[in-house]
Design a protein around this nucleic acid. Structure first.
Length: 189
DNA sequence: TGGGCGATTCGCT
DNA sequence: GCGAATCGCCCAC
């Protein structure tokens, strides 16, 4: 599967389809194990109230990175999806670190390896993603995405940390992963 | 034009 | 388990 083909799919297909892919920024990164989908008509989405200065890159071409400041402290990274111009996006929530571990440890400070990328704010810090990456296109340097050899089993749960549309089961994880963020864990196999 | 709040994380209890 | 840190957006005044 090529990245462009994956990104051509609908929001939830892209969200689930991103699981197992390896995302690298300047060679540092890992396997995507947890994501959440945010739809255009979704009250929990930043795109719900239309385009603003902050969320402009949500409305760009599929595969565009939308990076925003969370709680004034952390950066969170989303992948823009089809249909282009609607604000549909997938939030990257956790990675299994596979490349550039030393770099990630240096950026993340004194944390256990399983906490290097186990959260949306953690993985951006580990990969060095900041506002400067907002609007950047995935799949071209410094961002490389590698597909999984085998599509992973997917577990679905409600999304984490939001106050609106909390019932929608739009969080997707690789079944059995130990690299997910806090919050509801996937059911045991 | 300003107060409240959020797709979070970490340290201390 | 709870609360602080901290900034831009949103909506009400």
């Amino acid at each position: 599967m090529r990245l462009d083909d994956l990104l051509r799919g609908s929001l939830h297909d892209v969200a689930q389809g991103l699981l197992g892919w390896t995302i690298l920024r300047d060679g540092v990164g890992g396997r995507i194990v947890e994501v959440e989908a945010y739809a255009p008509d979704d009250p929990a989405s930043h795109a719900f109230r239309g385009r603003t200065r902050r969320n402009g890159s949500m409305f760009a071409a599929p595969g565009t990175l939308y990076v925003y400041r969370s709680y004034g402290i952390h950066w969170c990274a989303n992948v823009g999806c089809e249909p282009e111009g609607t604000g549909a996006a997938v939030l990257l929530r956790a990675l299994e670190p596979t490349a550039g571990l030393a770099e990630m440890r240096a950026r993340r400070g004194n944390v256990r390896d399983r906490d290097l990328c186990s959260g949306p704010g953690k993985l951006t810090e580990a990969l060095g993603i900041t506002a400067a990456d907002d609007g950047v296109r995935l799949g071209i340097p410094p961002y490389v995405l590698e597909p999984p050899h085998v599509a992973p089993d997917v577990v679905t749960t409600p999304r984490v940390g939001i106050t609106k549309a909390t019932d929608l089961p739009w969080r997707y994880l690789i079944r059995g992963t130990r690299w997910a963020s806090r919050g509801p864990r996937p059911a045991s196999p």
